[in-house]
Each structure stands twice: as structure tokens, then as C-alpha cells.
């Protein structure tokens, strides 16, 4: 860890040396979010609705991805006032997004005291070559990844949590499924490789050998992995859980639907009981209009967010 991120204070008891911002502490919060639903919110009022519905955290942003898509233009970090209002409104952790590579937006979010920073392709990238050096921060980061190589590159840069990069704001789960399967499939192949093959594979997927080896040993990513992008129904959420994800982000899927309270609660229940079709049937009933979906075939390459990030 970088020295600047580890502050040591001496407490009243001599043996209580306290260290903040360690990787264990960063990964630890993500572990506490597992089996839970993190919901996109744009106002303090929505944050309260999310908390009441059982969200384990909220993602504070200015516009949900569906609106970012519709409005076009440059999408940036939210107004700090909005983020502060949301932090004030709830007791659960608050996350917020920064543009890829925009380390000053990240410095601002750390100063505001957000609990997790999402370096997100949903916002317009600020750097087309470099991601943020996340080791420099006390606040942990979550980053999107389409495959194992991308996930391990982000972890090497200091990401303490990974999520799929499903096409945000489309209500279409197909890309998130593709990414989850790509990561899990690659890990399964890793487990059957000998050391010589691991070296070659690390080069092929452009990931550090040490992390490739660690992943092969663990049989899973070394950090928590959530589903994100395109989750619109309880069934979508349970699908991602059965595919081995640790939890679920829901963006436009809740507050762009007919009955946000009910749908939010149903998705929370679906993530807890993801292996129980009887309960899934029950909670999926009568949720009102889902968000209008976007068919990805009709989305031009330029409109796809998942290809952002390197």
C-alpha cells in the first residue's frame, strides 16, 4: 500500500495501533455488501426509498444511465451537494461514480466521505489510456470488467471490487451475462493449467502473472464480483446470482419502472432467495411496468458503454 493512504494514530491503549485504508479494509466492505442489492439513486428521497426496500448500499448519481443515454453530452461526477444530501439521508453505505481516469473527481469524492468510488464507463471517459491509480486512495474503488484480463488489470491498479459491464440503461441483461460467463469460464480454464501455461495465459490476457496465479489458486476472483448493467427484474437478479455473482447493482431498472418501491423490494428478496424458484415466482408477481428495454442490436457501437475502459 501507498504510505500516504495509511494513517496511523495512536490510541489510548498502547497496543491499539490503528491503520486505515488497507486492502483488507477496502475488500472487507465489499464482502459486507455481498448477497445484497446496490441501487442507483439521484435524490435523497430515492435513497430513502432504496434503504426502506432493503438496499445494502446506494449509488449516488446525477442522472440514471437510461437518461444519460437519452440526453447525450458529457456525463460527469455528480454535484457534491447532491451527494452530501444522499449521505445525510441514509445510514447504509453511499457510492458515487467518477469518469474513467479522472483522479481529481475521485479526490473530491474521497474528501466528501463516500464509502466506495465507481470508476465507471457509464460516465464519459476522461483518459483514453490510463485508469486511476487506485492504490493512492483510502476510499475503495469498484471497476467494471468484461473478461478476466480486464478484471485483473483493474485489481492490479487497486480496485477492491469488480462488477460486470452490462450495457447500463438498456434493461437488457445479455451483456452482463456475457461478462459473468467470460470471467467464470476463464477461471475454470485457469484451474487446469500448469505453471508454463499460466505464464503464457497471463501474457495473452494482458494481466499480471501474480494475480493470474492467485486467481487460479483461489478458483475465483481475489475480490468480490457483482453483476451490473441491464438488471430490470427479480429474475434477472437471480440469474446473475446463479451465475456465481456475489451481489447485484440495479441502475435505471428501479426508478424507471412503474412501481419503484415494490420492484426494489422484490429484487432484494430475489437476491437473498436466488435459488428458490417458488419464492422468485411469488416476488415477481404484479410489479407493474418494468423499464422499457433497449435491444442491443439497435444500439450503434458508439452508443455502447461497455467498450469504454482499457
Amino acid at each position: 500500500m501507498n504510505d500516504s493512504s495509511n494513517r496511523t494514530r495512536n490510541g489510548a491503549s498502547e497496543q491499539n495501533d490503528v491503520i486505515t485504508g488497507t486492502f483488507a479494509v477496502k475488500v472487507g466492505l465489499a464482502q459486507m455488501l455481498k448477497g445484497g442489492v446496490i441501487m442507483d439513486v439521484v435524490t435523497a428521497e430515492q435513497a430513502r426509498i432504496a434503504e426502506e426496500a432493503g438496499a445494502c448500499a446506494v449509488m449516488a448519481l446525477e442522472r440514471v444511465p437510461a437518461d444519460i443515454r437519452k440526453d447525450g453530452g458529457v456525463a460527469r461526477m455528480s454535484d457534491p451537494r447532491k451527494i452530501k444530501e444522499i449521505i445525510e439521508a441514509v445510514t447504509i453505505p453511499v457510492m458515487a461514480k467518477v469518469r474513467i481516469g479522472h483522479f481529481v473527481e475521485a479526490q473530491i469524492l474521497q474528501a466528501l466521505g463516500v464509502d466506495y468510488i465507481d470508476e465507471s464507463e457509464v460516465l464519459t471517459p476522461a483518459d483514453e489510456e490510463h485508469h486511476i491509480n487506485k492504490h493512492k486512495f483510502t476510499t475503495p474503488f469498484v471497476c467494471g470488467a468484461r473478461d478476466l484480463g480486464e478484471a485483473l488489470r483493474r485489481i492490479a491498479e487497486g480496485a477492491a471490487m469488480i462488477r460486470t459491464k452490462g450495457e447500463a440503461g438498456t434493461g437488457n441483461i445479455v451483456e452482463a451475462v456475457r461478462h459473468a460467463r467470460a470471467v467464470n469460464g476463464a477461471i475454470r480454464r485457469l484451474r487446469s493449467m500448469d505453471e508454463d501455461e499460466l505464464f503464457a495465459y497471463a501474457k495473452e490476457i494482458r494481466a499480471p502473472y501474480s494475480l493470474v496465479k492467485l486467481t487460479a489458486e483461489l478458483g475465483r476472483l481475489p475480490v468480490v464480483n457483482f453483476a451490473a448493467g441491464g438488471v430490470a427484474t427479480p429474475a434477472d437478479a437471480a440469474l446473475m446470482m446463479q451465475l456465481g455473482m456475489d451481489g447485484v447493482f440495479v441502475g435505471s431498472g428501479i426508478f424507471k419502472s412503474g412501481n419503484p418501491e415494490k420492484r426494489a423490494r422484490a429484487i432484494v428478496m430475489a437476491v437473498t432467495h436466488y435459488n428458490d424458484p417458488q419464492i422468485l415466482a411469488e416476488v415477481s408477481e404484479d410489479l407493474g411496468e418494468p423499464m422499457v428495454g433497449v435491444n442491443l442490436d439497435t444500439l450503434s457501437e458508439a452508443d455502447k458503454m461497455a467498450v469504454r475502459g482499457w
Binding site: 491499539n16 495501533d17 490503528v18 483510502t138
Partner: peptide
């Protein structure tokens, strides 16, 4: 909040 999360013995 998370920035104050810590490890100790």
C-alpha cells in the same frame, strides 16, 4: 464511514 474503517490488534 469507510474512510475511517481500520485494522488493529
Amino acid at each position: 464511514r469507510q474512510n475511517e474503517s481500520f485494522e488493529t490488534f
